[in-house]
């Protein structure tokens, strides 16, 4: 009996030694040299592998970051400025700070505002629905509500509101990785400057139809009337193809356009409740 035991032990040990040698030789032969700094940069990245930077995962970004001469075009939207500073420190470089951004959904076409004219009954995917038809309402630009943006979000930061059937972005969770922007086949979601205390103003519509047509399809559509353009004291609003657009770099969050818009297509988020007019103006001056 003991000879069997002994034999087994010796055989297994021998096998182990032989395999270890083979493994070592193979590892030596196929060794790939990698810049150790890639590992260091990767270590400071968030590790979400969301692809928001445009590279396949955090390692891809770290690789590009180490190899790039000029890193100004690279940015990790998830980690933000802190992460970028840390990464730059590894390389002994400095990076400019960028304003934090957030995804905004530019459609307010809830069933109440935008009448459904047909019923969709197919694969639950906006992309599939878009390739089939214009949408279940009279507006061919609006949100389909099938949640492609929700499906791609790695941070659980977006969900479809059961009442409005529109995507809602969470201020806290959104990292502005841009996955939803790419996923939306209607190009409704946009990355905008987050604004102080998440305060932001934007045109919540991308309908390029003429005013009458747009209004007929949706009560809160931008009808391209241009009133906001006229009222804006900062030249932040442009009108193109019957659609107003607020440049977030110029907007000073004065909220004049919000009041002016006849269809309530311009949304203001995270502002304190409105005060009587005089006070509101006083406050605007203060913030400026």
């Amino acid at each position: 009996m003991s000879s069997v035991l002994l034999f087994s032990i010796i055989m297994l040990s021998l096998l182990g030694v032989v395999l270890a040698v083979i493994l070592y030789l193979v590892a030596q032969k196929f060794k790939v040299f990698e810049d150790p700094r890639i590992d260091e940069v990767e270590a400071v990245l968030p590790g979400a592998n969301c692809g928001g930077c445009g590279y396949p995962g955090c390692r891809g970004f770290a690789d590009a970051f180490v190899k790039a001469e000029d890193v100004s075009s690279l940015f990790c939207p998830v980690g933000g400025n802190d992460t970028m500073n840390a990464a730059a420190a590894v390389m002994g470089k400095t990076v400019e700070a960028k304003d934090p951004e957030i995804a905004v959904v530019r459609c307010s076409g809830s069933p109440e505002n935008r009448k459904r004219i047909v019923q969709y009954d197919g694969a639950s995917s906006c992309k599939v629905a878009t390739s089939l038809y214009s949408g279940d309402t009279g507006c061919q630009y609006g949100c389909l509500g099938l949640g492609d943006c929700v499906a791609v979000c790695k941070f659980d930061a977006i969900y479809i509101d059961p009442v409005t059937l529109l995507p809602v972005v969470s201020d806290e969770k959104c990292t502005a990785c841009g996955a939803c922007v790419k996923a939306c086949p209607k190009f409704i979601i946009e990355l905008r400057k987050k604004g102080p205390k998440s305060k932001r103003i934007f045109v919540s519509c991308i309908n390029k139809d003429k005013g009458g047509v747009a209004r007929k399809a949706c009560q809160v559509a931008c009808i391209g009337c241009g009133k906001c353009v006229k009222v804006c004291p900062h030249d932040a609003i442009t009108l193109e193809n019957n659609l107003a657009y607020i440049d977030f770099n110029k907007c000073k969050l004065c909220r004049k356009c919000v009041e002016e818009c006849p269809t309530s297509a311009i949304l203001e988020l995270n502002f304190p409740p409105r005060k009587p007019k005089v006070e509101a103006e006083a406050q605007v001056e203060k913030t400026e």
């Binding site: 197919g122 694969a123 995917s125 992309k127 599939v128 390739s131």
Partner: peptide, 12 residues
């Protein structure tokens, strides 16, 4: 399953 829905998407 909506097989063709997704295959059509894949084709595109």
């Amino acid at each position: 399953l909506p097989l063709l829905d997704y295959i059509r998407l894949g084709k595109a």
